[in-house]
Computed example of a mutant assay.
Amino acid sequence: MSKSVTDQCVDNNAKYAGGEAVHDPKYPGGQPIRPAKHVAVVACMDARLDVEDLLGLQTGEAHIIRNAGGVVNEDVIRSLIISHHLLDTNEVILVHHTRCGMLAFTDDLLKAGLEGDPAAEKLLGQATGRAFTSCKTSSTEPAAFHAFRGPLSALDAPHDEKSNERLEWDVRRGMAAILSHPWLPSEGPDKMTVRGFIYDVDTGKIGEVSYPGPMGSIG
Protein backbone atom coordinates (compact mmCIF):
# COMPACT_ATOMS: atom_id res chain seq x y z
CA MET A 1 0.00 0.00 0.00
CA SER A 2 1.35 3.41 -0.94
CA LYS A 3 2.10 5.87 1.83
CA SER A 4 -0.19 8.80 2.48
CA VAL A 5 1.15 12.29 1.90
CA THR A 6 1.13 12.77 5.67
CA ASP A 7 3.33 9.69 6.08
CA GLN A 8 5.68 11.06 3.43
CA CYS A 9 5.88 14.33 5.35
CA VAL A 10 6.76 12.42 8.53
CA ASP A 11 9.59 10.69 6.65
CA ASN A 12 10.74 14.03 5.24
CA ASN A 13 10.80 15.50 8.73
CA ALA A 14 13.17 12.79 9.93
CA LYS A 15 15.56 13.83 7.16
CA TYR A 16 15.13 17.52 8.02
CA ALA A 17 15.82 16.92 11.72
CA GLY A 18 18.93 14.99 10.66
CA GLY A 19 20.27 17.96 8.73
CA GLU A 20 19.14 17.02 5.23
CA ALA A 21 17.36 19.68 3.15
CA VAL A 22 14.28 18.30 1.40
CA HIS A 23 12.50 21.49 0.37
CA ASP A 24 13.91 23.11 -2.78
CA PRO A 25 13.71 26.90 -2.36
CA LYS A 26 14.21 27.77 -6.04
CA TYR A 27 11.34 29.27 -8.03
CA PRO A 28 9.74 26.22 -9.73
CA GLY A 29 8.11 27.96 -12.65
CA GLY A 30 4.42 27.93 -13.42
CA GLN A 31 2.25 25.79 -11.17
CA PRO A 32 -1.42 24.71 -11.33
CA ILE A 33 -3.78 26.25 -8.79
CA ARG A 34 -4.63 22.94 -7.10
CA PRO A 35 -2.03 21.71 -4.59
CA ALA A 36 -0.18 18.80 -6.21
CA LYS A 37 -0.10 16.74 -2.99
CA HIS A 38 -3.77 17.43 -2.15
CA VAL A 39 -2.81 18.36 1.39
CA ALA A 40 -3.51 21.35 3.65
CA VAL A 41 -1.31 22.21 6.63
CA VAL A 42 -2.54 24.25 9.59
CA ALA A 43 0.39 25.56 11.61
CA CYS A 44 1.45 28.24 14.07
CA MET A 45 2.88 31.54 12.83
CA ASP A 46 5.96 31.12 15.08
CA ALA A 47 9.12 32.34 13.34
CA ARG A 48 10.97 29.13 14.22
CA LEU A 49 8.69 27.03 12.00
CA ASP A 50 9.43 26.85 8.30
CA VAL A 51 6.58 24.56 7.34
CA GLU A 52 7.77 23.64 3.85
CA ASP A 53 11.23 22.80 5.20
CA LEU A 54 10.19 20.77 8.23
CA LEU A 55 7.66 18.71 6.21
CA GLY A 56 9.69 18.56 3.02
CA LEU A 57 6.99 20.14 0.87
CA GLN A 58 7.71 21.85 -2.42
CA THR A 59 6.11 25.00 -3.78
CA GLY A 60 2.76 24.11 -5.29
CA GLU A 61 2.22 20.92 -3.27
CA ALA A 62 0.19 22.13 -0.26
CA HIS A 63 -2.00 24.83 1.19
CA ILE A 64 -0.29 26.35 4.22
CA ILE A 65 -2.67 28.02 6.69
CA ARG A 66 -1.03 29.80 9.62
CA ASN A 67 -2.13 31.81 12.64
CA ALA A 68 -1.11 32.35 16.27
CA GLY A 69 -1.05 28.85 17.76
CA GLY A 70 -2.14 26.96 14.64
CA VAL A 71 -5.63 27.17 16.13
CA VAL A 72 -8.57 25.71 14.21
CA ASN A 73 -10.85 28.73 14.41
CA GLU A 74 -13.65 29.95 12.15
CA ASP A 75 -11.26 31.36 9.54
CA VAL A 76 -9.26 28.12 9.36
CA ILE A 77 -12.50 26.17 8.87
CA ARG A 78 -13.45 28.63 6.12
CA SER A 79 -10.09 28.08 4.41
CA LEU A 80 -10.30 24.29 4.72
CA ILE A 81 -13.78 24.19 3.21
CA ILE A 82 -12.54 26.16 0.19
CA SER A 83 -9.34 24.10 0.05
CA HIS A 84 -11.23 20.80 0.04
CA HIS A 85 -14.35 21.46 -1.99
CA LEU A 86 -12.90 23.77 -4.63
CA LEU A 87 -9.22 22.82 -4.76
CA ASP A 88 -9.20 19.07 -4.11
CA THR A 89 -7.26 18.69 -0.86
CA ASN A 90 -8.12 15.58 1.13
CA GLU A 91 -5.48 15.40 3.88
CA VAL A 92 -5.07 17.87 6.74
CA ILE A 93 -1.96 18.12 8.89
CA LEU A 94 -2.13 20.14 12.12
CA VAL A 95 1.20 21.36 13.54
CA HIS A 96 1.61 22.84 17.03
CA HIS A 97 5.05 23.30 18.57
CA THR A 98 6.99 23.39 21.81
CA ARG A 99 7.72 26.67 23.63
CA CYS A 100 4.60 28.20 22.11
CA GLY A 101 3.55 31.67 23.21
CA MET A 102 -0.07 30.51 23.47
CA LEU A 103 0.93 28.71 26.69
CA ALA A 104 1.82 31.99 28.42
CA PHE A 105 -1.54 33.74 28.79
CA THR A 106 -5.30 33.34 28.96
CA ASP A 107 -7.87 35.17 26.88
CA ASP A 108 -9.21 37.04 29.91
CA LEU A 109 -5.71 38.02 31.04
CA LEU A 110 -4.75 39.49 27.67
CA LYS A 111 -8.07 41.32 27.28
CA ALA A 112 -7.75 42.80 30.77
CA GLY A 113 -4.21 43.93 30.04
CA LEU A 114 -5.21 45.58 26.76
CA GLU A 115 -8.06 47.34 28.56
CA GLY A 116 -5.69 48.76 31.17
CA ASP A 117 -5.91 46.51 34.23
CA PRO A 118 -2.64 47.12 36.16
CA ALA A 119 -2.52 43.59 37.65
CA ALA A 120 -2.94 42.03 34.18
CA GLU A 121 -0.30 44.36 32.72
CA LYS A 122 2.14 43.27 35.43
CA LEU A 123 1.47 39.54 34.88
CA LEU A 124 1.81 39.85 31.10
CA GLY A 125 5.05 41.75 31.53
CA GLN A 126 6.40 39.02 33.80
CA ALA A 127 5.32 36.30 31.37
CA THR A 128 6.87 37.94 28.32
CA GLY A 129 9.94 39.52 29.87
CA ARG A 130 9.11 42.91 28.35
CA ALA A 131 7.05 45.91 29.38
CA PHE A 132 3.42 45.37 28.44
CA THR A 133 1.89 48.55 27.04
CA SER A 134 -1.86 48.71 27.43
CA CYS A 135 -4.15 50.33 24.86
CA LYS A 136 -6.47 51.25 27.75
CA THR A 137 -9.63 50.68 25.78
CA SER A 138 -12.02 47.81 25.12
CA SER A 139 -13.01 46.15 21.86
CA THR A 140 -15.37 43.38 20.76
CA GLU A 141 -12.83 42.10 18.21
CA PRO A 142 -11.27 39.63 18.20
CA ALA A 143 -13.96 37.71 20.05
CA ALA A 144 -11.33 35.23 21.27
CA PHE A 145 -7.54 34.81 21.28
CA HIS A 146 -7.78 31.01 21.68
CA ALA A 147 -5.05 30.72 24.31
CA PHE A 148 -4.32 27.11 25.24
CA ARG A 149 -6.02 25.55 28.25
CA GLY A 150 -4.23 24.77 31.49
CA PRO A 151 -1.95 26.51 34.04
CA LEU A 152 0.23 29.25 32.56
CA SER A 153 3.92 28.91 31.82
CA ALA A 154 6.46 31.65 31.14
CA LEU A 155 6.92 32.73 27.53
CA ASP A 156 9.31 30.35 25.73
CA ALA A 157 9.75 28.22 28.87
CA PRO A 158 11.66 24.93 28.42
CA HIS A 159 9.49 22.10 27.15
CA ASP A 160 8.21 19.69 29.77
CA GLU A 161 5.55 17.03 30.26
CA LYS A 162 2.89 19.49 31.41
CA SER A 163 3.34 21.89 28.51
CA ASN A 164 3.34 18.95 26.11
CA GLU A 165 0.01 17.82 27.56
CA ARG A 166 -1.46 21.28 26.99
CA LEU A 167 -0.25 21.24 23.38
CA GLU A 168 -1.77 17.80 22.84
CA TRP A 169 -5.09 19.01 24.24
CA ASP A 170 -5.28 21.81 21.70
CA VAL A 171 -4.21 19.63 18.78
CA ARG A 172 -7.03 17.22 19.63
CA ARG A 173 -9.50 20.09 19.92
CA GLY A 174 -8.45 21.23 16.46
CA MET A 175 -8.83 17.74 15.04
CA ALA A 176 -12.26 17.44 16.64
CA ALA A 177 -13.36 20.78 15.18
CA ILE A 178 -12.48 19.58 11.67
CA LEU A 179 -13.82 16.06 12.03
CA SER A 180 -17.15 17.26 13.42
CA HIS A 181 -17.82 20.00 10.89
CA PRO A 182 -20.72 19.14 8.55
CA TRP A 183 -18.97 20.65 5.52
CA LEU A 184 -15.68 18.80 6.04
CA PRO A 185 -16.56 15.13 5.40
CA SER A 186 -14.71 12.55 7.49
CA GLU A 187 -16.25 9.54 5.74
CA GLY A 188 -17.52 8.54 2.32
CA PRO A 189 -15.92 8.93 -1.12
CA ASP A 190 -15.05 12.61 -0.54
CA LYS A 191 -13.64 12.19 2.97
CA MET A 192 -10.74 14.13 4.46
CA THR A 193 -8.17 12.66 6.83
CA VAL A 194 -6.81 14.69 9.74
CA ARG A 195 -3.64 14.05 11.74
CA GLY A 196 -1.98 16.23 14.35
CA PHE A 197 1.63 16.74 15.41
CA ILE A 198 3.83 18.69 17.82
CA TYR A 199 7.04 20.13 16.39
CA ASP A 200 9.99 20.37 18.78
CA VAL A 201 11.75 23.67 18.11
CA ASP A 202 14.86 22.37 19.89
CA THR A 203 15.29 19.19 17.82
CA GLY A 204 13.46 19.80 14.54
CA LYS A 205 11.39 16.64 15.02
CA ILE A 206 7.62 16.21 14.89
CA GLY A 207 5.74 13.79 17.12
CA GLU A 208 2.24 12.58 16.35
CA VAL A 209 -0.64 13.26 18.77
CA SER A 210 -3.03 10.38 19.39
CA TYR A 211 -6.72 10.88 18.74
CA PRO A 212 -9.20 10.69 20.34
CA GLY A 213 -8.01 11.62 23.80
CA PRO A 214 -8.18 14.29 26.53
CA MET A 215 -8.91 17.84 25.39
CA GLY A 216 -8.03 19.72 28.52
CA SER A 217 -8.91 21.38 31.77
CA ILE A 218 -9.15 25.07 32.60
CA GLY A 219 -7.33 24.45 35.88
Results as ranks from 00 to 15, higher is better:
residue 1 M to C: 06
residue 3 K to A: 14
residue 4 S to L: 05
residue 4 S to P: 03
residue 5 V to L: 11
residue 8 Q to G: 15
residue 8 Q to E: 13
residue 9 C to N: 07
residue 11 D to K: 01
residue 13 N to K: 11
residue 15 K to Q: 15
residue 15 K to N: 12
residue 15 K to E: 13
residue 15 K to R: 15
residue 16 Y to F: 15
residue 16 Y to Q: 11
residue 17 A to F: 10
residue 17 A to D: 12
residue 18 G to L: 08
residue 19 G to D: 09
residue 19 G to N: 10
residue 20 E to M: 11
residue 21 A to Q: 12
residue 21 A to N: 06
residue 21 A to C: 03
residue 21 A to R: 12
residue 25 P to N: 06
residue 27 Y to D: 15
residue 29 G to K: 11
residue 31 Q to Y: 04
residue 33 I to T: 09
residue 35 P to Y: 06
residue 35 P to I: 04
residue 35 P to G: 07
residue 36 A to T: 10
residue 37 K to T: 02
residue 37 K to W: 02
residue 39 V to N: 00
residue 40 A to K: 06
residue 41 V to A: 06
residue 42 V to M: 06
residue 43 A to W: 03
residue 43 A to Q: 10
residue 44 C to F: 05
residue 45 M to S: 12
residue 46 D to A: 09
residue 47 A to N: 14
residue 50 D to K: 12
residue 50 D to C: 10
residue 51 V to P: 06
residue 51 V to Y: 08
residue 52 E to H: 13
residue 53 D to P: 00
residue 54 L to I: 15
residue 54 L to K: 05
residue 56 G to E: 10
residue 57 L to F: 04
residue 58 Q to M: 11
residue 59 T to N: 13
residue 61 E to Y: 05
residue 64 I to V: 15
residue 67 N to Y: 08
residue 70 G to Y: 04
residue 71 V to Y: 00
residue 73 N to K: 09
residue 74 E to L: 08
residue 74 E to K: 13
residue 79 S to C: 14
residue 79 S to H: 12
residue 81 I to G: 07
residue 83 S to R: 01
residue 83 S to E: 01
residue 83 S to Y: 03
residue 83 S to M: 03
residue 84 H to G: 07
residue 85 H to K: 13
residue 92 V to A: 08
residue 94 L to S: 07
residue 97 H to S: 06
residue 97 H to I: 05
residue 97 H to C: 07
residue 100 C to Q: 04
residue 102 M to I: 02
residue 104 A to M: 10
residue 106 T to C: 05
residue 108 D to E: 15
residue 110 L to G: 01
residue 111 K to H: 12
residue 111 K to R: 15
residue 113 G to L: 07
residue 113 G to D: 05
residue 114 L to H: 07
residue 115 E to R: 12
residue 116 G to I: 00
residue 118 P to M: 09
residue 120 A to G: 13
residue 120 A to T: 11
residue 121 E to M: 15
residue 121 E to L: 06
residue 123 L to P: 02
residue 124 L to C: 10
residue 126 Q to S: 07
residue 127 A to E: 02
residue 127 A to S: 14
residue 128 T to H: 14
residue 129 G to M: 02
residue 129 G to V: 04
residue 131 A to N: 11
residue 133 T to A: 11
residue 134 S to R: 04
residue 135 C to K: 12
residue 135 C to A: 09
residue 136 K to F: 00
residue 139 S to A: 15
residue 140 T to E: 12
residue 147 A to R: 03
residue 151 P to S: 13
residue 152 L to Y: 04
residue 152 L to S: 07
residue 153 S to M: 10
residue 153 S to W: 00
residue 155 L to P: 03
residue 159 H to P: 08
residue 159 H to R: 08
residue 165 E to R: 13
residue 165 E to S: 09
residue 165 E to F: 00
residue 171 V to F: 01
residue 172 R to Q: 04
residue 172 R to C: 02
residue 173 R to C: 04
residue 174 G to H: 02
residue 176 A to I: 02
residue 177 A to W: 00
residue 178 I to D: 03
residue 178 I to E: 03
residue 179 L to I: 05
residue 179 L to R: 14
residue 182 P to R: 08
residue 184 L to E: 03
residue 184 L to Q: 07
residue 184 L to D: 02
residue 187 E to T: 12
residue 190 D to E: 14
residue 193 T to S: 15
residue 193 T to P: 03
residue 193 T to A: 11
residue 194 V to T: 13
residue 203 T to L: 12
residue 204 G to E: 08
residue 205 K to V: 00
residue 205 K to I: 01
residue 208 E to A: 10
residue 209 V to C: 02
residue 219 G to W: 06
